[in-house]
């Protein structure tokens, strides 16, 4: 591999180069080539001609380290600063701690009306599912063998925040992100009601959502970081 780009990292294989040794790999390739073939450099250097054996290599290694430092100082920076406020429209991730849940609210009854209009075509008239969209309720008690598992929001999803986050980012399938936050709360409230997790008259908002106890909340074993 040849290069005229001083920033190139010598094409080393990242799979074999953990981060702790990467500083040494930042050496521009031309210098690395000289390190591998020091005579190319030496023949032009009167001082170095008098330096022999290990002393030469030590001296050369120092010069390479110096080059590395200079290279790091000159590292390219092309990112443009932005404020978190200006990034807010993209910052839609909501974790199990509920941080980022927006203002707004909705009831199962409001959600039922939205569902009929925007969700039923795929998920069935009352959430029973169809060839175009998965079932939204039921299946509790089917996870253990030998039952055939029916994995729905009610039987499988461990966090209420997942439901809000997914509906807001990805639903309805043909027009994602078109629902207002009130509409998301309402349609999610309807799905929770289908699963017996909310009653008529309950209101879903960022506080009540965090009180929903998902039936399968303790159903998962994290393989990372213990297994890997």
């Amino acid at each position: 591999m040849s290069t005229s780009n001083a920033f190139t990292m010598a094409g080393l294989d990242p799979a074999t180069q953990p981060p702790r040794v990467r500083a040494a790999n930042n050496i521009p390739l031309p210098l690395r080539e000289r390190a591998a073939r020091p005579h190319l450099r030496l023949s032009k250097c009167a001082l170095a001609r008098r330096v022999r054996g290990e002393f030469f290599f030590a001296a050369f290694a120092l010069s390479v380290l110096g080059a590395t430092t200079a290279s790091a100082a000159d590292a390219p920076k092309f990112g443009k600063p932005i404020t978190e406020a200006d990034a807010a429209s993209w910052d839609i991730s909501i974790g199990p701690d509920g941080k980022g849940l927006p203002a707004g609210s909705g009831t199962p009854a409001q959600g039922k009306a939205i569902y009929a209009q925007k969700c039923a075509a795929c998920h069935g008239a009352t959430g029973e599912g169809s060839a175009s969209g998965p079932r939204l309720f039921g299946g509790i008690g089917t996870l253990k063998a030998p039952a055939q598992p029916v994995q729905t929001v009610g039987s499988y999803w461990p966090y209420p925040t997942m439901v809000f986050d997914f509906v807001r980012r990805a639903m309805p399938w043909d027009k994602p992100k078109s629902l207002s936050n009130d509409e998301v709360y309402a349609s999610v409230a309807y799905v929770f009601q289908l699963n017996g997790l909310m009653k008529d008259g309950d209101v879903l908002n960022k506080d009540t959502l965090m009180k929903i106890q998902m039936p399968n909340r303790d159903g998962f074993i994290n393989l990372y970081p213990n297994k890997f």
Partner: peptide
């Protein structure tokens, strides 16, 4: 963040009804 694709899809349901997740 426990996204749908790490806490619903891409989980491995075992015989005992528990599911493995974060199998990387």
């Amino acid at each position: 963040v426990m996204a749908i694709n790490e806490s619903r899809q891409y989980t491995l349901l075992m015989d005992d009804g528990k599911a493995w997740r974060f199998y990387y």
